[in-house]
Design a protein around this nucleic acid. Structure first.
Length: 376
RNA sequence: GGGAGAGUCGCAUAGUGGCAAUUGCAACAGACUGUAAAUCUGUCCUCUUCGGAGUUCGGUGGUUCGAGUCCACCCUCUCCCA
């Protein structure tokens, strides 16, 4: 994997770069749609490629391991062949499930014991096992196994958890170094900064993570309920320490405004369920602001979904019609909203990149943040 | 004409003497940040200073401290027999 920076914004830390993986080159800053079980919910692979212009999508180790299982993925020849995507992919390690499945797992020094949310069966994830699974899934970028701490989190717990995440990273790194890819192409391990909301822990974590000299570095454990200002403050701190010549990935972020602000701070990669999940729940993100399409005021609004939108759905369907589809529980509603939101997110990061290169990112960003936080 | 049954907040339902009244749907609003989410929460008779207050269960009377609930008559609807 190689990463090169084409431009750095003059009065900010925003960068425009290119990340070349085994399955293609990604132009950063980039938003990565989440496809937990290998599928970006409600969206076809050709739509992701041709309409939304997605460059890389996520999969989840925990979910894919449980279903369809490693045998199937291996027989398919890897996840990118299995899900008809055949472009760059990233797998999250299951570290987020350590957080989100809080009452269904037990953390030990050795690893984590999960009870499956599907059938209650018991599974143990160790750093070594997670690396083996991610090898078999076959994504281009594979995340280290970590603990995503909740918010709020006591200092002592955050510190203890951080040390565990660091020990696990050492084991992940060792395992990856000792094994080969299953399908004959390179995979890059990205370690994850933790440390909750504590600056000294974050600082320490960034230094530890940076010392591995991996192809890219991730910041985890944010956007879990802490105040947004705190999130920006810690992201800024991490960006000031993490290597400048490596891509920085802020995990799980966020709203369009969050993404713009964090690009400004020096983040290159983002992922979030928000455009898809909130889309399925009737929320549309547009260049003019946020729409809750289920609201009564759109009942007879026959204007197109988004006049500035880049997706075919924006130019095809009216607000009143989409509202009708939602209220009728039509499956098409979820598809239209998901496609629109993802296309908007990809348009947004694409515009950010363009403005970084053209040199007016800061001005553009300030105006854009105002727009995307407006409630229509 | 005879017999049986039913009328409850938009619709459908629960309720058999202490009830502003169950549940589902619909409607309306909100939440959602490395997806246990096509999910979840709230409002949903009227007014409210959110403590309450006022009017309700087809209609009119009655019994009772108290009636959606019991009684009488009336109205409407459904089914069965002619």
């Amino acid at each position: 994997m190689t990463f090169s920076i084409a431009a750095i914004s003059n009065n900010s830390n925003a960068r425009a770069g290119s990340l070349t993986t085994s399955h293609g080159t990604i132009h950063t800053p980039i938003f990565m749609p989440v496809g937990t079980v290998g599928s970006v919910k409600a969206v076809h692979s050709p739509e992701l490629i041709n309409d939304i212009k997605a460059q890389i999508i996520l999969g989840n180790t925990y979910h894919l391991y449980l279903r369809p299982g490693l045998d199937v993925i291996k027989q398919a020849g890897g996840i990118q062949k299995f899900n008809a995507w055949n472009k760059p992919m990233l797998t999250d390690s299951g570290g987020y499930q350590v957080y989100s499945l809080g009452d269904r797992r037990k953390i030990t020094e050795e690893g984590v014991i999960f009870r499956s949310h599907i059938d209650g069966s018991r599974h143990e994830f160790t750093p070594e096992k997670v690396m083996d699974i991610e090898r078999t899934i076959g994504a281009d970028i594979i995340m280290a196994f970590d603990e995503c701490t909740p918010y709020p989190c006591e200092y002592d717990y955050a510190k203890k958890s951080l040390h565990l995440t660091h020990k696990w990273l050492e084991r992940c790194y060792k395992r990856i170094s000792e094994t080969d890819s299953v399908y004959g192409y390179d995979q890059s391990l990205f370690p994850i900064v933790q440390g909750s909301v504590y600056s000294d822990l974050r600082r320490q974590s960034c230094e530890t993570i940076a010392s591995y000299d991996c192809d890219g570095n991730a910041i985890g454990g944010l956007s879990v309920g802490e105040p947004i200002e705190k999130m920006y403050e810690l992201t800024e701190l991490c960006c000031s320490i993490l290597p400048k010549d490596k891509p920085r990935y802020l995990m799980g972020v966020g709203t369009p405004a969050n993404i713009l602000e964090c690009i400004d701070l020096g983040i290159d990669m983002f992922d979030c369920v928000m455009p898809t999940r909130n889309g399925r729940n009737g929320m549309l993100f547009t260049s003019e602001g946020i729409i809750n399409i289920k609201n009564e005021k759109f009942k007879t609004d026959f204007s197109l979904l988004d006049l500035n939108g880049t997706s075919f759905v924006d130019k095809t369907y009216t607000k009143a019609y989409l509202r009708h589809l939602f209220n009728s529980h039509e499956i098409l509603a979820l598809q239209i909203a998901s496609i629109h939101n993802l296309a908007f997110y990809l348009w947004l990061v694409g515009e950010a990149r363009r403005h970084i290169i053209e040199g007016d990112f800061k001005v553009w960003k300030t105006a854009m943040v105002k727009k995307v936080t407006t409630r229509l």
